[in-house]
Design a protein around this nucleic acid. Structure first.
Lengths: 233, 233
DNA sequence: TTATTGTTGACAATAAAATAACAGGAGTGC
DNA sequence: GCACTCCTGTTATTTTATTGTCAACAATAA
């Protein structure tokens, strides 16, 4: 339908950040804020803030700005954070366990209900009161329990099969920490957290900055820029 | 300088993914690949692959494609992965410990050398052989050891001060898992991993898909779209 | 009241990113 | 060695995202 224009991914990715800043303002008992002020805090142009928000409706008032509590709550609703979500963790290794122990998710309505693993050493144990099951029990579990999001914290080699099974058994959201890109049906949504990729990006930027400084040094010395490496060197 | 054109962030963020796919191809003993073939595997247009790679040089050959091993190695060099990086973890909680225990980083040249925390219960202990120090010892540690990247896995409330200290003491790269945006000098690079933001984005997309289906139902029922909420309601 | 200021929402202008088009060199088969 | 196909590197086009501008209107002060 035309009346419901598609929101761009760039905007969606900024929403949680708006939500976070508005939450902070709320805690500081600030009741109103203009796009200009928020702009200064967030290092985004005021124009972009207004345009982003206007994708979802006119939440502000001329001459006043935005009411912090109201806007915070609206974004909460836009993000769908006004209800609980059931999650399971598949892969009870380091990262899986860390996520189970990270209690802040629960405070925001993301509730981890079960963990699945293949390691007999941990199956049957509980982590923060949450039971660890054998992956073989997953199908049955999913028949009897609604799961909104599966958190995939398992090795590359096993992620594809598990994702496939989960999709088959009706899980529509996957938060993927495995270092592979999952191939799933169109109606299943995957959000990747590729930690190694993120770290590599950081490393690139660090090196880039270092290299740039080098070039500046060359310039200030009047020395020529060193030639680029050629294919075949 | 003009000769060194700026590479766009979008391209840089894709590099680790190229690197990963090329690594996979290498393991499958595939020696050459065309942009078209890679395009199919990665769900990126061939055009974009060629343009991305050409930012860094002409690595391919007409009529042949790209040599997998050669290209893999070139990207490795571009990303700066041909040397070791020393890292420290600041914050020995769940996520900090999980990252220390995640041995894959080390395989790629990212070596965690020390952990810092304020909790007396864990100070003095070791995690996978890596010592946990008091944060008060951080300044001295940084005087005596080169640290490329600090991994920040500590509570919001403490992240800002620590980041400030680290910057003051010469750490140029920060991999930030704290749920705040750090304010650091221009020569310090921060890569954020905001897990909660990522999860919220996933939740939004799940709901969006669900809502879209709803709208289709509305349409098929001939029902009007519900009016938007107004400020003040 | 009336003037002045502040601030949105809409839209226009720019910039960035992604895709497409294509010229021409490199490989392949005969 | 020649014709033909493949596939890159590069330029052009289209799409998407960001920024700048301004009329309209609310809040505030005179």
């Amino acid at each position: 339908m035309d009346s419901e224009k598609k929101i761009s991914p760039a905007v969606i990715n900024r929403l949680p950040r708006y939500y976070r800043y508005l939450g902070d303002l709320l805690e500081s008992d600030i009741t109103r804020i203009s796009s200009k002020e928020l702009s200064a805090k967030m290092n985004i142009t005021a124009s972009q803030i207004r345009q982003d928000l206007n994708n979802f409706g006119g939440f502000g008032q001329q001459g006043y700005g935005y009411n912090v509590e109201y806007l915070h709550n609206e974004i909460k609703k836009i993000l769908g954070l006004d209800r609980l979500y059931n999650m399971i963790v598949v892969g009870g290794g380091n990262i899986g366990q860390a996520l189970v122990n990270y209690t802040n998710f629960e405070k925001r309505g993301f509730v981890i209900k079960a963990v699945f693993d293949i390691n007999p050493r941990i199956i049957g144990m509980t982590i923060r009161g949450i039971e660890v099951y054998d992956v073989d029990q997953m199908e049955e579990y999913l028949k009897n329990n609604i799961v909104d999001v599966a958190i995939l914290t398992l090795p590359r080699s096993k992620a594809a099969k598990v994702a496939n099974d989960l999709a088959k058994w009706g899980v529509k959201g996957m938060w993927n920490f495995s270092h592979v890109d999952l191939q799933v049906p169109d109606d299943v949504l995957v959000e990747n957290v590729h930690l190694t990729d993120s770290l590599m990006t950081l490393i690139y930027k660090i090196n880039e900055m270092y290299t740039e400084e080098n070039e500046l040094n060359h310039l200030s010395n009047g020395l020529p820029i060193k030639p680029k490496l050629e294919v075949g060197d």
